[in-house]
Design a protein around this nucleic acid. Structure first.
Lengths: 361, 361
DNA sequence: ATGAAAGCGCTAACAT
DNA sequence: ATGTTAGCGCTTTCAT
């Protein structure tokens, strides 16, 4: 920058002002400065800038597992939304442990990120959250609702899970099994509540023999499925609690030679990227990934810039979409499922591409 | 930091030295400093640190599409590998355009990242690459080989694609179709060369009527498939050039009511996360994601730290893994495919989990 | 409209 | 073994 100033024959502060447009500069000087910048290939040093302005235009993203499609989609969407506003994204994997989460947060804090997006791990997250609060760095919690002192954004779980159950019940199923997620996650608990709600609304009783924990992962879900199927009165339909568990369920059913939906019906929470090519195609609740991402980023930016800023923390639950296909037992172009609180759409009217199926591998 | 120094009754430089262990400090003073740090909850400001040391311990990652499973897996693995060495990762999506790539690189440069990992877009990347070179920031190119002035890491494409073709040929197929990727990507070109090599080795001639471009995405791949199937002499087996195109092929086959592998055999480049639950399960080349990631990070760190540093740029091509399942037409526990240059393994001996199927959605 | 100078929070000589 | 001091490359008063 000193170099540029010298070449243009102006003071450093003038260079700064033409770069940032922070005060009027005569056309002549501006021209000379711009020229000098061009010649030298000068690129402002944001580190130095940050030191004085004490903002970094950095958003820290702490996720438990970047291998998870849902989180990845959210990260990708946030990165884009953020960059439109001049923010870059720093990634930190919490490795699904309380310690890893604390490390990740500290790393971000010491880099002085302007804001943090955090998908809290299961476990005692109080210390980290307290820390975040005392450091006063704007933070929004994503996916899992963990602490009402923070802004939180996630999918609406109860009604949508209920709608899955009600759909199966309307199809005549009375023994509907449920494969739930990891204990201690709000998503898990809410989806179970949705399951019970759906049963209730359908006039069906709750039977704990029809519920097992798939611990949010494929392999345990496969085991959980085995448990349910080996009951004296096994379920005739299954509700899977998330994308990975659906994989486990599918694998388990295949090994047992059971066909969906002839031998057993299957519906799931989370749409799967490849759901369209499964045979039969999966009836599922799709999460509003893009909306979650943009809600998070907008909220965060409001908090960071202080504009409209304060206000009490808010929890936003975005509705999922009931994607009606055939794994529930309905015919390929069958009638719409029994209407209820969920917005419905049939895949024949192509989805506003939730997954951009593009590019190279 | 001044606060900490005051509380501990020492000079700021002493605080710095206990924090960084950069010079011996008496146990007494160290104790007092540590105590003061504890009391104040002091967190070193890496921004200020970076300004003087002129390193940020930041790695910039420029990817064309974070929605792509393969890239995501690599990013996740790099993030972990990097953080083990004290580096954080800044993400930048090039939005698959030359302009987007340039913007992304500039953003990273202006943040003074210590190194960059770049998956070059298709198109004229020369300007960006020249820029990178002149800025002298250590850079490694990933996946697509674009410029030999840089370190490059990717999968070996030719031999592995050839092995796919040879396998089909050995099964008796003589009309083997190929759905290729986007023009201008080295992966696309190499896989086509592999296809031709496989044909040649199998004593089969090249017929351009059996080759079509799926432009690296699902929808165009589905069209490309249609093209091939409508030929007077359609292929009896298909080789798909990447994961997304496989989705398109699968979708296309389903719409035509063609069954794999009875009506047509299918093998693919890129293993798919859910390949195990497809019916039939997909025979594919799996990319060595973890190895690619750790190779990239190690290389980058060597260049950044200057240790062992200089040396000419090197191109590393890591071998893929032939994952033999049933979509090729082999029986579920069939014999191994005809051996050739590729390492083989049968899924029955469980893979060193390429995809951690864990966590929550 | 422009320049001079102070200072952001650190590290690294340079002293002692 | 510890303290003092001079910057790192910017932004931002405060003068002019």
């Amino acid at each position: 920058m000193t170099d540029v100033a010298a070449r243009a024959g102006v003071a450093a502060s003038t260079v700064s002002h033409v770069v940032n447009g922070t005060r009027p500069v005569s056309t002549e000087l501006r021209r000379r400065v711009l020229e000098a910048i061009e010649e030298t290939g000068y690129l402002p040093n944001r580190i130095a800038r940050s030191l004085v302005t004490s903002d970094t235009h950095l958003i820290g993203i702490v996720m438990s597992a970047l291998t998870n499609r849902f989180f990845v989609a959210v990260v990708a969407a946030m990165e884009r939304a953020g960059r439109r506003h001049g923010y870059s994204s720093v990634l930190a994997d919490s490795r699904d442990s309380v310690q890893g989460e604390a490390d990740a947060v500290n790393a971000l804090l010491s880099r002085r990120v302007d804001g943090i997006v955090l998908a809290p791990v299961a476990g005692d997250r109080k210390p980290v959250l307290d820390r975040l609060l005392s450091e006063e760095v704007p933070t929004v919690l994503i996916d899992r609702f963990a602490d009402s002192r923070f802004d939180q954004v996630g999918v609406e779980n109860i009604e949508s899970t209920a709608s899955l159950v009600e759909h199966l019940a309307a199809l005549g199923h009375s023994r509907i099994g449920f494969i739930g997620g990891l204990k201690g996650l709000s998503t898990t608990e809410e989806r179970i509540r949705g399951y019970r709600l759906g049963l209730e609304r359908s006039g069906l009783g709750y039977d704990h023999n029809l519920v097992a924990s798939g611990r949010s992962a494929a392999a345990p879900a496969e085991q959980a499925l085995g448990l349910l199927l080996d009951r004296p009165a096994p379920p005739t339909a299954i509700v899977s609690g998330n994308n990975y568990m659906t994989i486990g369920v599918l694998a388990g059913l295949r090994k047992r030679g059971m066909r969906v939906p002839d031998d057993i019906a299957l519906v799931a929470y989370d749409d799967i990227e490849f759901a369209e090519v499964f045979h039969p195609r999966l009836t599922a609740i799709a999460q509003p990934v893009l909306q979650i991402a943009s809600t998070v980023v907008n909220l965060l930016i409001r908090r960071m810039t202080g504009k409209d800023g304060a206000g009490p923390p808010q929890a936003t639950r975005l509705p999922g979409t009931f994607v009606h296909r055939e794994s529930c037992g309905c015919p390929p172009n069958g009638s719409a499922p029994p209407a209820r609180s969920q917005p419905r759409r049939h895949p024949e009217q192509p989805p506003r591409s939730r997954h951009a199926l593009v590019a190279e591998g």
